[in-house]
Design a protein around this nucleic acid. Structure first.
Lengths: 196, 196, 196, 196
DNA sequence: GATGAATGAGTTTTCATTCAT
DNA sequence: GATGAATGAAAACTCATTCAT
């Protein structure tokens, strides 16, 4: 009359994966505030099923991005021992930018103060800030980076620079991030003025 | 006759100012998408009064920010003839940052693609991009800036850097903008990698 | 400091006439439910002025149409003694149709049950039903009309036939009214069936 | 499984029918522009439920009337081969009148130019005009009707004659339609004047 | 008398969320 | 576990009406 418990669980897992894939797509198209119904529709499941798997929007958002966040953190680990820490940092930032701009709306979501997205912030920060920090520290130790730059601040800034819009696309974001990084290489005078 | 008409007009003008002040406050707290009713409540007027003065949300938003946008553009004019264009640009950016972070939510509003905010984009771009461009050109002419940097892209980037959040406040934004500017002083290699 | 009482009264009368003219126009364009503000605007006066002259919408509507209603009634009087009452009735109906279709929206207004338009009904009925009845009676007396036809019912029917729409314009209304009248010339069988 | 799905679907269908019944009633009382909330209230459901079943007002209006429109069209088909086409037309018009006056407010709705009711027009015209035309053609072929009369114009006129009001009820409408039809039996002189 | 600013009730519409099946 | 019907709070927007000047 019904499948075995095992295959039922497998079915649930498949449903979960459909949801994650659908949500990822919809988030790209409409941002993380997209109607839950749209996600259910895209996944081909009922509305209630979304709520069963992800009782809150935040849980869904976090689940959608966790995989890529983890991958990004792993890349930092891989680059950690590089003999050229400044270049390693640049490479990692490129990957981070790629991640952010690919996930249309993520940058915006990151800056949203909507409490339901708090856990997305946590995910990003808890995982990526340490990852970034290790690269930063290495670069700083070599004198390739101003020690005043903190990983958290830099990542927020980069996250913001990755909020795209008309006339400001992926390449612009990448270029601006590169320049920001370049500006982090040397100590800034307290007033921030560019020396002549 | 002119007195009564005058005082009615004066009352309306006072209402208008209350609305602008209330909207500015509410925009800081809730962003430019705040419910119109909240703005009416804050100003102590009826809902219809908001619509009378500002038939669309966009008109209200633009009115709220126009004064400061104009002031910011004026500052660019004042700084235009400076003998040290790089410093002039830095100073102007500081003022621009100050403007953006004071108007919490404006940065976010600027990156919104909501068509009702199109006119806010226009206001900002039409007024400030030329202002910024004149400073940029002067700095570029002196070799104090990479000619590849365009005013539009730089302003979008700065606008994004001014989206604040927990752990990323005005001072962080200011510092990041200063570093971004510093990174604009020299030509970037095409791959954006920091030279060792 | 102010005009004499006489000229003030004259000014008021002029305002009243402007309002009637403006309302007539607006009623044609938008129907009798048009926003009061539009009428004030068209007349070039303030909103309050409309309310001063015509405290209710109904009073304005009635005032707008009274002149023409009276004229229409007068025409009936003129035609009353005609030696050919059937033709007189036709002619009068033509004038009535002309009146109705010219006043776009009046037909619809007449069938509306909005209580605020009750007095418009009264105006029409009290004035025009007797006028029409006199022509009807004359025609009936000559055997040119079925005595079962009452003025009130006929006028409602004609009023309805004058509600225009896409594909049904003034000429169609006129033709249908003529046919209706033709159908009133002879006694109908109780079942309304057309004899072969 | 099929049972639970079945009963949920059945419940939804019951809701849909409640809504149609409620809407029909409310349309009679208030016309087709009645507030959606009133219909929801009458049906004893939430506001959103109305929107779920009928996303636009037009869809609800059309659904309410489609059944009867179809029935009316079917009757025309049944009467099409009648040996006495004039009588068939009369009978069909009687049914049409019955339909229109029963649905108080439909006549008015039909003459409304509100774009949201465009589909109601289409429903009526696409379905009933051809139905009526077939009866008309048959009668015309037998010389029982003036060939100048078109189905569209006749139906608009009949529709208008079925707009009831105080002192003008179903019987009056029926009588006036019968007379209009009678007036369609013979060619009218161009000036529409009744010959003595 | 004239004005028009202010008001707020009334409607439409959208979606997050619940829950019976 | 899955479903999707139902719900209703929230927000936008319109306009008739009042009233202080």
């Amino acid at each position: 009359m019904s499948r075995s418990a095992g295959s039922r669980a497998a079915g649930a897992e498949r449903t979960r994966q459909s949801l994650l894939a659908a949500a990822a797509q919809v988030f790209v198209e409409q941002g993380v505030q997209a109607p839950i119904r749209d996600i259910a529709g895209r996944a081909g499941v009922g509305l209630g099923t979304v709520y069963r798997h992800f009782p809150t929007r935040a849980e869904l958002v976090v689940a959608v991005y966790r995989h890529q966040v983890d991958e990004c953190a792993r890349l930092a680990t891989d680059l950690a021992g590089s003999p050229r820490p400044g270049e390693a940092l640049s490479r990692w930032m490129d990957a981070f930018v790629e991640f952010l701009v690919t996930k249309h709306g993520l940058g915006a979501a990151l800056q949203s103060e909507d409490p339901s997205l708090q856990s997305l912030h946590s995910l990003m920060l808890d995982t990526l800030v340490p990852a970034c920090a290790s690269l930063l520290d290495a670069a700083t130790a070599r004198g390739e980076l101003d020690p005043d730059v903190t990983a958290y601040t830099l990542m927020r800034a980069v996250g913001n620079l990755c909020i795209l819009g008309p006339g400001y696309d992926r390449e612009h974001a990448r270029a601006m991030v590169a320049r920001l990084l370049a500006g982090c290489r040397t100590t800034m005078p307290p007033d921030g003025l560019v020396a002549a």
